[in-house]
Amino acid sequence: MDKTIERITLRGVLPRVFAAERSSAPIRASQVWLAELTFERGRFYSVNASSGMGKTSLCSFIYGLRDDYEGTIELDGADVSRMTVGERCRLRSRHLAYLPQDLDLFPQLSAVDNILLKNSLTDYRSEAEIRRMLGRLGLEERADSLVAHLSVGQRQRVALVRALCQPFDFILLDEPVSHLDAANNRLCAEMVTEAARSLGAGVIATSVGNPLVLPAESLTEIKL
């Protein structure tokens, strides 16, 4: 899969863990589970839900990390669950960027090395550019600190820069600013918006009440 992904389509998707609750009010009210939903490239989506509704599951399903769901998820018609490991790896370095909720940084590496590690795979940005991005998010002084020594909010920003160190058609952000104040939320949102617009990419950001402040004019709110 080397051509641009234009849309991500969910058809009747439901995490298996919710199988017994398929008729419950929250599932019936969801615009995602058991529904037909298409995310389009170039548009921004804010997926909002209360805790335990499966935001992380949704990101993991689309990103191909898990397949414990019923229904299908297609990337331009290609079923994610049927992709090979090689295809998924290519997808993750060329088409889909992902900021996981638990960040998945390497604590033994510095902030900048965590990002350079991803960048060594994609060769997308220079180290100077990466340091500028960290500086823009207020982490210039912390770039060479071990991730183990950073606060959760700082780690979130490091993980965001890492997610932006690759070409992408869609970026999945799982509660990207849950530990950030309004000012840092705005800075992160600006950076994501710039990167997405420069690539014509789509943004799917989840939240539990502290959403990434994406531009309202191209934003679609989705209730999970």
Partner: peptide, 13 residues
């Protein structure tokens, strides 16, 4: 965990 994260980032097995 580290190997799983590397594969999550796009490194091939």
């Amino acid at each position: 965990r580290d190997i799983a994260v590397l594969v999550m980032l796009g490194f091939t097995p």
